[in-house]
């Protein structure tokens, strides 16, 4: 085999392979870092009540309310998108996409909670989480494949008997 043919072989096979391996390594590192960060921040707000009720529980008295939101756009790496594309041929569970949605949802809810805390609210009621696909990936796995996660709810300040 001539050196040109070897070069062509490397260029056609080696480069995509390197890209897959490289993005897998970096992507996984970013994902792990994000999960660690999420766990730390979640531990701080664990006591904060988030409710999906439309109205207040019967014995609660609120004196002010306002909308709180949190949103994030997250995408996954090239390798995981590639695996997902392969998976979609045979069908079944796409494991590589699950952490993406999990991360995005937890991040959005955390941002909403942090905003509520910053505004001095005691709880958030009627919490809703919405997902929208920002843009679709092309069949070859290129193009943006981000999801946008939006969490919103009504932050409330409780009327406490001792403070009134």
């Amino acid at each position: 085999m001539s050196s040109e043919a070897l070069f062509a072989l490397f260029f056609n096979l080696g480069f995509p392979l390197l890209l897959l391996l490289g993005t897998y390594a970096i992507g996984t590192a970013i994902e792990r870092k994000h999960f660690r960060d999420l766990l730390q921040r979640e531990a701080k707000v664990r006591q904060f009540p988030l409710l999906t009720f439309q109205s207040l529980p019967a014995n609660w008295q609120a004196n002010s309310a306002a909308m709180v939101t949190g949103s994030v756009v997250i995408s996954i790496d090239y390798f995981k998108r590639f695996v997902a594309t392969l998976r979609s041929i045979f069908g079944g569970r796409i494991k590589t996409y699950e952490p993406l949605l999990d991360r995005a949802r937890r991040e959005a809810v955390l941002r909403m909670t942090e905003e509520a805390l910053q505004m001095g609210f005691d709880a958030v009621i009627n919490v809703r989480v919405e997902t929208s696909r920002l843009a679709s990936a092309r069949r070859d796995g290129k193009g943006t494949a981000g999801v946008e996660m939006l969490a919103f709810g009504t932050g409330i300040k409780l009327l406490r008997p001792e403070s009134s």
Binding site: T23, I30, E31, H34, I74, S75, Y78, E107, G143, T144
Partner: peptide, 11 residues
Amino acid sequence: NLVGGELTGYS
């Protein structure tokens, strides 16, 4: 988008 993570510009 190649390596994944938050797309801050879009957020």
